[in-house]
Write a protein that binds this DNA or RNA. Structure first.
Lengths: 188, 188
DNA sequence: GATCGCCTTGGGCGAGTGCCCAAAATCGAG
DNA sequence: CTCGATTTTGGGCACTCGCCCAAGGCGATC
């Protein structure tokens, strides 16, 4: 299959793009550095993708979706205790300076300037929020829907603030966050 | 005074830069569009500033400092009730799509790639956190220091998520946030 | 009015940009 | 092996980038 090889090049370009967005910022990714990182000629970028913008959108959305999916899968059948460990784990895995955190923020920002990306991100976030809400409800948290929204936002906010506040560790934040889940976690 | 006029041009450049960072993103601000927005010749940028990078740093830091200062001043002698109103007011003033919110996020991101900017932002945030901590302590919130860190991060996270979640209004978020302040606000 | 120093202009330099395209390489089908 | 289609290459086009600089404008001081 020739399609096999084509797919592999596409994926290498997408992976390189995700790396470079985090390193250099959305607007700092050029066709040439992208091609070099992916190990292909500069012309290939516009052979496999209609535009650099489209490539960046697809790369960011693909990477962000993968991370969210993994989190969602783990959360799916988790108990209250397991869910909290999951949160805590996420908090010190994504410190704000790591590529994944930066890519998230870059993507949020880019979504503000690209309608199509914004729509896709909105849908992704909504799907995840449904899962989070279900878990909160099952755990016995009072207002699961609003709590899920705020909790998701707070997690991203913590990643945004972490590089600017070295004392903002996961251990410091989790006891406070637990107050958001009042009533459900006193046994923890 | 010739210095008078010089200062005015500098400030016009800084103001134009703050606008453009929000509109086009940090890397999307060029010397030429910046000069045009400020109403001056393109060469003036490098007469008044050592580099475009230095100009952007100063502009962003200046604008962000002004916003934080204003919030700090208002919070300084506020009661528990007034403080909560202040939070609520901030939440629906900065919706995430407005120039101020975007500028904040752009600046956080840029700080990750510029040591000097990161240092200055860290100090600014630390100063504000002290004030927030004092207010929380005076209000009777349990763990004021950690709570201040998480609360500040959560506010920024909400602004990040708002454009992607239309249902995330200030009214929906505030009751949940109030749980962070358990024990102090049951009269509210 | 002449002079001096700060402010401002606009053009120019080399480098880098997204995108395009003719030509070469590669590969599966016959 | 040959042929046709697909994939890949690298150079080129028109443009923008940050930064520099010679030239002129301008206001304050004698």
């Amino acid at each position: 299959m020739t399609t096999q090889r084509t797919q592999e090049v596409r994926e290498r370009l997408l992976a390189a793009a995700a790396e470079l967005i985090a390193e250099r910022g959305w607007a700092g990714v050029s066709t040439r550095v992208l091609a070099e990182r992916a190990g292909v000629g500069p012309g290939l970028v516009h052979y496999h993708f209609s535009s650099l913008r489209a490539l960046l959108n697809e790369a960011a959305l693909h990477a962000v979706t993968a991370v969210v999916q993994e989190g969602a899968d783990r959360l799916a059948g988790a108990t209250a205790r397991e869910g909290l460990d999951l949160l805590l784990g996420a908090l010190d895995a994504y410190t704000g300076g790591d590529p994944v955190s930066v890519l998230f923020t870059e993507t949020y920002l880019a979504a503000g300037r690209d309608e199509e990306l914004r729509r896709a991100l909105t849908r992704l976030l909504a799907d995840f929020r449904v899962l989070l809400t279900d878990w909160l409800r099952a755990t016995g948290v009072p207002d699961p829907d609003a709590t899920a929204r705020v909790l998701a936002a707070a997690m991203d906010g913590l990643m945004l603030h972490r590089p600017l506040d070295p004392s903002l560790t996961a251990e410091a934040a989790v006891p406070v966050l637990r107050r958001l889940l009042t009533g459900a976690v006193e046994e923890y």
